[in-house]
C-alpha cells in the first residue's frame, strides 16, 4: 500500500499551479489598478472574491495535498473553515442589522426628538428665569415630569447599564420640592447611561488607561475650574481633540473622537455626570450644571480637533 501523501504531486503539476497563482494575482492587481468601465463595482468585488477563493482552493488542494489526502484531514480543516467563515458572515450580518436598526430609529424619532428639544429649551428658559444660579442639582429629582422622550430614543441604543434601583432610591431620598423640580435639567440618569460611550476608553472608574487614555477623575475639575474651561469641555465632546496633552503629569497623544451625533442633552448630561463622579465634585470650586442650551450655543462652529487643542493650551490650569 502506498502512503497517501506520496501520491499526486509531480513537479509538473506544481509548476502549473504556481503559474496559475501568479496569473490570478496579476489579474486581481489589474482589476483594482486599471479602470474596467464595463464592470460595475459589485462585479469587480465578485471577481476579486472568486479569484481569491480559487487561489485558496489551489493552494489547499495541491500544495497542501488535501486533494489526495485522507478525508479525516479535510474534515478537520473543513469544519474549522466552515465555523470561521460562518463567524465572519454572522458578525457582518449582526453589525449591518444593528446599524440599520439605529438608522431607522433615528429617522422615526426625528419629530419626537424635535418636540423634546423644544420642551427642554423652554424648561431651561423658565428655569433660568426662576433660578438664575441653581444650586444642588444633585438632589433635585423631577417627580412630575417624565424624562424627555429623547432619553428613550437614544438611551436604548446605549449599551450602558441604567440602574432602576438607583433611580428609585434617588426619588425617595429627594423630597419633591415644588418649583425647582419643574425647572431642573434632570441629567443624572441620562448622564450615567451616556457615559457608556466613554467607558470603553476612559473606563467605568474614570481612571482612563495610563499613557493611552487620560483619566477624567481629578482631571476634569482642573479644566472646569479654569477660565473658559466650561466651554472647552463642551468643545472637546463636540469636536474631538487631537495632539499631545499632559494630564496629571502624564503625556497622552491618542485621538479623542468628536461626539456631535449625541444630543445637546446627552452631552450636557454626560459632562455633569463626569464632573460629579469619582470624587470630582469635591474638587470643583463652584459647580453649576452644564445646560443643554450651552451645548447648543457652541454647536455649528465647525472647530477641528487641532483647534480644540489650541483652546486647551489657552487654559490656565492650577
Amino acid at each position: 500500500m502506498k502512503p497517501s501523501h506520496e501520491a499526486g504531486g509531480s513537479v509538473h503539476s506544481y509548476i502549473v499551479v504556481a503559474l496559475v497563482l501568479a496569473v490570478i494575482t496579476y489579474m486581481e492587481f489589474a482589476l483594482v489598478e486599471y479602470d474596467f468601465n464595463f464592470l460595475s463595482p459589485q462585479a469587480v468585488i465578485f471577481w476579486l472574491v472568486l479569484l481569491s477563493v480559487i487561489k485558496f482552493a489551489l493552494v489547499v488542494l495541491f500544495f497542501m495535498h488535501l486533494r489526495y489526502d485522507s478525508r479525516i484531514l479535510s474534515g478537520l480543516f473543513g469544519s474549522g473553515l466552515v465555523i470561521g467563515v460562518g463567524m465572519v458572515l454572522a458578525l457582518s450580518l449582526i453589525f449591518a442589522a444593528f446599524q440599520g436598526l439605529s438608522l431607522a430609529q433615528e429617522s422615526a424619532g426625528g419629530e419626537a426628538e424635535a418636540a423634546a428639544e423644544e420642551l427642554i429649551a423652554e424648561r431651561s428658559l423658565l428655569e433660568r428665569f426662576l433660578y438664575p444660579a441653581p444650586k444642588d442639582f444633585g438632589l433635585d429629582v423631577s417627580p412630575t415630569l417624565p424624562p424627555p422622550e429623547i432619553v428613550g430614543i437614544k438611551g436604548e441604543l446605549n449599551l450602558a447599564l441604567t440602574l432602576p434601583a438607583e433611580e428609585a432610591v434617588g426619588s425617595e431620598a429627594a423630597p419633591p420640592s415644588e418649583i425647582s423640580a419643574v425647572a431642573a435639567f434632570d441629567w443624572q440618569e441620562l448622564g450615567a447611561s451616556t457615559y457608556g460611550n466613554c467607558a470603553a476608553c476612559h473606563q467605568p472608574t474614570g481612571q482612563g488607561i495610563p499613557a493611552a487614555f487620560p483619566p477624567l477623575a481629578q482631571n476634569l475639575p482642573l479644566l472646569y475650574n479654569a477660565e473658559g474651561g466650561r466651554a472647552y469641555l463642551i468643545s472637546v465632546l463636540l469636536y474631538g481633540l487631537q495632539g499631545q496633552i499632559d494630564v496629571l503629569g502624564q503625556s497622552y497623544s491618542s485621538v479623542m473622537p468628536a461626539w456631535q451625533q449625541l444630543s445637546d442633552e446627552q452631552i450636557a448630561a454626560v459632562l455633569n455626570h463626569s464632573l460629579t463622579s469619582w470624587g470630582n465634585d469635591d474638587l470643583l470650586a463652584d459647580f453649576n450644571a452644564i445646560e443643554p442650551a450651552e451645548v447648543a450655543a457652541l454647536r455649528g462652529q465647525d472647530l477641528g480637533p487641532q483647534q480644540v487643542l489650541e483652546l486647551r493650551q489657552q487654559l490656565v490650569l492650577e
Binding site: L73, L76, F77, G78, S79, G80, L81, I83, G84, V85, M87, V88, L91, S92, I94, F95
Partner: peptide, 21 residues
C-alpha cells in the same frame, strides 16, 4: 497539524471579522 490549522482558521476568522465589521 491539520487540527491546529482548523482551529487557526477560526482564530483568523475572528480577526478578519473584527476588521470587516
Amino acid at each position: 497539524m491539520w487540527a491546529f490549522l482548523g482551529s487557526d482558521v477560526m482564530f483568523f476568522g475572528a480577526l478578519i471579522a473584527s476588521y470587516v465589521v
